[in-house]
Each structure stands twice: as C-alpha cells, then as structure tokens.
Computed example of a mutant assay.
Amino acid sequence: MTGPLLDVSELRVTYPGRGFRARPHEVLHGVSLSVREGETLGLVGESGSGKTTIGRAVLGLAKPSGGRILFRDQDITHIPAKVRRSMARDIQVVFQDPYTSLNPSLTIGDILSEPLVVQGSSVTDARARVLELLDQVGLPADAAARLPREFSGGQRQRVAIARALAPRPRLIVCDEPVSALDLSTQTRVLDLFIDIQRRTGVAYLFVSHDLAVIRHISHRVTVLYRGAVVETGPADRITASPEHPYTQDLLLAAPVADPARQRERREKRSRLATNKSTETKAS
C-alpha cells in the first residue's frame, strides 16, 4: 500500500427527490478527504451537512453518483455486494444508538461471537475472542451471559465497540457514537476509543456535530457545510483558531464550563450573526 488507508476523492452522492416529478437532490458536492493508518479524522458539521452520508458511502450504504473511494489502494466505489461483505473484516462501524444496534434477544456473548463464526472462526476460538474483547472494552467476563437491556447506555456502547473490534478491522466508521450519552459517560467512552487505538493501531473516521468531542479524539479535522468541505487541518488548529467563518461559528456554539467565557462566546456569536445579516441585506 502506497497511499493513505482511506482516500475519498471528489465524492458526490445524490438522492432521489421526494414527490412526483421532484428533482434529485445532491447532498455531497465533490468531497475529498483521507485517513491514514492509525489516525482519527474527525468529520464535523451541523445536521444536514453530509457528514453521515460520507460514512455511509464508505460503508457501501449510500451509492456515490460521482468521485472515487479507495481503501488500501483498492477502488471500492462501486464494488459488488459480495465483495463488500468480504471487506467487513477491514471496515467496521459503531452507530449512534447502542441499544437499537444490538439484537435485544441475544446475549452479549452471542452478539460478539456470531460474526466471528460466520467469518470462519471455530466456536472455541470465538468464545476466547469474546472474553478478550470484553476485557479490552472494560466489561466483566460474566457480561457475555447477559442481555443488552441489562446494561447502561455507556456499557451498551462498549459492547458495540467490542463488536466492531471483533474481526480486527483496519478502519472503524464512528457515526455520532457518543451523542446519545451523558457528558461524563461521553468522556469515558472517548478515552476508551483513544486507548484502543493506541493498543491496536485501528483508524477512525469519526463523525460528530460536536466540536468539543472532535477536539478530544481527532488528529485531523474536516469541516463540512451543506455537503462541501470548508476547512481541513490539524485538530489543534481547527478547534482553537479556525479560519472559516462557519467553523468559527461552530467553535463559539460549543459549550464551556466557565460561565463568563460562555457569555462572551454567546455575545460574539450574536455579533457575527448580526454582521452576516447586515452583509446579506447590503448585497
């Protein structure tokens, strides 16, 4: 492999219009980004910016209408479903809601071992791997015999992470994986992601609307606005001194613990919104 682990070039995704004679709607307008081995690229933007669609396109759940997606130098933009399924070992996903992504009628042990057995592991090897995974995400061994409903939201997300790690993937697409959790649990789960990456070398394409979350976990950040990239660069710079007005607005909208700083941010954001409105009327 000579290039990055994941290389997305000029990606476009178009959805059919709703209703009779409705025009197709393009949600991604030539997006380019890359993820290196062992790196976390944070995708940040407000709802409707197209960040989740990028993850879905990488996973084969959204059909690109243009551009190219390379994984380990292999073009996976339009590969057949059978080939796509064979890539599950290398590309996994953690969804937003840890409960609906887990089969409520299966024990945690069955949830984690089932994909391993399907991919050819023996039952004995799968059970051993399950114990290893539970330890890796900080859950007790007896969790294997319990059902998802017996766990808290943070614990269920740990199970979802363990399931994604089961086949030892090279890349995990994380689609708002902590947005359904409270703040203290968010921090613990984010730290778990970081610890797992340090130990395994897995790469993350991490989708979030929260710039504070992106700052915590990412090496680099790509900012999306209405289906287009407006800014990209090292996480330290993008989350501290962004250049694009939209990213600046996202930064000001992020909550801080200090009430005085929060008030200053709110006032500055209000001034920026007033200036934008005045500029729009003048033009």
Rank of each mutant, 00 (worst) to 15 (best):
E264D: 13
S184D: 13
V213M: 04
L183A: 15
L272W: 12
E231H: 02
A212V: 07
P255G: 09
I217G: 09
S270C: 10
E243A: 12
V213S: 05
L272R: 15
V202S: 09
E264Q: 14
E264L: 09
Q186L: 13
L251K: 05
E267V: 05
H244A: 02
H209V: 09
P255I: 09
Q248G: 15
A228Y: 03
L250S: 04
A240C: 11
A212H: 08
L251Y: 01
P234C: 10
S270L: 14
G233E: 00
E231R: 02
D249Y: 03
A212T: 14
P242K: 07
A228F: 02
P255Y: 10
V221F: 03
E243Q: 14
Y225Q: 14
V213I: 12
A228N: 05
T247M: 01
S218F: 10
A235I: 06
L211H: 01
I238A: 07
V256R: 05
Q197Y: 02
A254R: 09
D236G: 00
V229K: 06
P242D: 06
R263A: 13
L250A: 02
E267N: 08
P234I: 11
G233M: 00
A203N: 07
L192G: 05
A203K: 03
A240M: 09
L224C: 06
D236S: 10
R269W: 12
V202Q: 08
F193S: 06
A235R: 03
R266S: 12
V202I: 13
Y204R: 03
D195P: 10
V207C: 00
R269Q: 14
I214M: 00
E264M: 10
H219N: 13
L250Y: 01
T187R: 15
S218G: 04
F193W: 03
A254K: 12
D258I: 09
A254G: 08
T274H: 11
L252F: 01
H219W: 08
D210W: 11
R188A: 15
F206L: 10
A228S: 15
R265L: 10
H209I: 11
S184E: 07
Y225D: 10
R188S: 15
T185D: 01
T187H: 13
D236H: 08
D191G: 01
R220G: 09
E243K: 04
R215E: 00
D195E: 15
Q197C: 06
I196E: 03
P255F: 09
R188F: 09
P245W: 09
Q262D: 14
T200E: 07
L190A: 07
A212I: 06
T274D: 15
L224V: 03
Q186T: 11
